[in-house]
Design a protein around this nucleic acid. Structure first.
Length: 279
RNA sequence: GGUCGUUUGGCCGAGGGGCUAGGCACAGGUCUGCAAAACCUGCUACUCCGGUUCAAAUCCGGAAGCGACCU
């Protein structure tokens, strides 16, 4: 497993390893799954994809979103197949949660009905966060004690599971055992000095623009309401009402993309530090 | 040289005698189905020197910087 912050050189390292072991690559990148997203998510180049067989690149549409659970089951069945042919398989990605799911498994939880999700969303808007907090406190006091109570996303998630299952979310999580994978996992974190990483990010953003990022954004403009497009490199354009409007502020957009990418990289480093003691 | 105005943290920016907004940046962190998401914590500044006052970033003088206009 090759991981690390964005723009650290994971793709390159993964290809190098895959060639060394004469094997294939499984991508664990929550944005490179999508066929519509290429330049802005730094998908490996055609030459790179050609050099080593890659899985889970451009295999889905933004309008048909994916989630960690789906990824975990797809990845495990894929790996079961690959391990019949290879002793080693290279996985690569910077999406921490996806990597954790692949390495350790993820709880099997009931699928909440879409209507429930929508109604929680509406309650949040109408009644405010306190209402969700109070309900969670009643339905799952244990989880209430340790969640980020000000985080609507977590509150909603916990509530939708509690309400769908009829049991506390924390209890369902506790029942999950860590899966023992039928293979060993070595994690390699690709590290860079902060200053160097920042320069690499800036240079990569410039390159994306030179490679046609604006055209790509234009091509997904009508898909912007999909959450998958709430992504650095795209949302900075969507903040403007139209592509034309955005283009007249391109310098500012490029500046925000660089900064937001840096923020993202820092969060990834925090995650790697906690999970793997590096980064 | 003169007149008027202005000076708030790394940056923007409110306030305007005691309670020291807010935002951004920066630093650290949380994490089991939207994760390139969402959220949390830290960071106490009022140009300088005097004065008035129990108390001054806030009022009064002066200095310096900046700006505008005048000569």
């Amino acid at each position: 497993m090759v991981t690390g912050p964005t723009a650290s050189g994971k793709t390159c390292r993964a290809i190098q390893l895959a060639q060394q072991y004469h094997t294939e690559i499984v991508s664990c990148d929550s944005r490179q799954f999508y066929v519509e997203l290429n330049i802005g998510v730094a998908r490996p180049s055609p030459a790179e994809l050609d050099a080593v067989p890659h899985h889970f690149i451009a295999c889905r549409s933004v309008s048909n979103p994916y989630n960690v659970f789906d990824f975990e089951s797809d990845a495990i069945s894929l790996l079961n197949g690959l391990f019949k042919r290879y002793d080693v398989v290279v996985a690569v990605g910077g999406s921490g949660l996806y990597i954790e799911a692949l390495c350790k498994g993820i709880a099997v939880l009931p699928d909440p009905p879409a209507a429930l999700r929508a109604s929680l969303q509406e309650r949040l808007a109408v009644e405010g966060i306190a209402s969700l907090q109070e309900q969670l406190r009643q339905l799952d006091p244990d989880y209430y004690d340790r969640v980020d109570r000000c985080n609507p996303a977590r509150l909603q998630r916990a509530l939708e599971v509690c309400l769908t299952a009829g049991r506390p979310y924390s209890e369902l999580l506790k029942q999950q055992e860590l899966k023992k994978r039928p293979f060993e996992i070595d994690v390699e974190v690709v590290c860079r000095e902060p200053g160097e990483l920042r320069s690499r990010i800036d240079a990569r953003v410039e390159q994306m623009v030179a490679d046609g990022l604006c055209d790509e954004v234009q091509s997904v403009w009508n898909l912007r309401h999909f959450n998958t497009l709430n992504t650095v490199g795209y949302r900075e354009f969507f903040a403007y009402g139209s592509m034309k409007d955005a283009m007249s502020h391109l310098d500012e957009i490029v500046g925000s993309i660089k900064l937001n990418t840096w923020h993202y990289a820092k969060k990834q480093m925090t995650w790697c530090r906690k999970k793997y003691g590096q980064g």
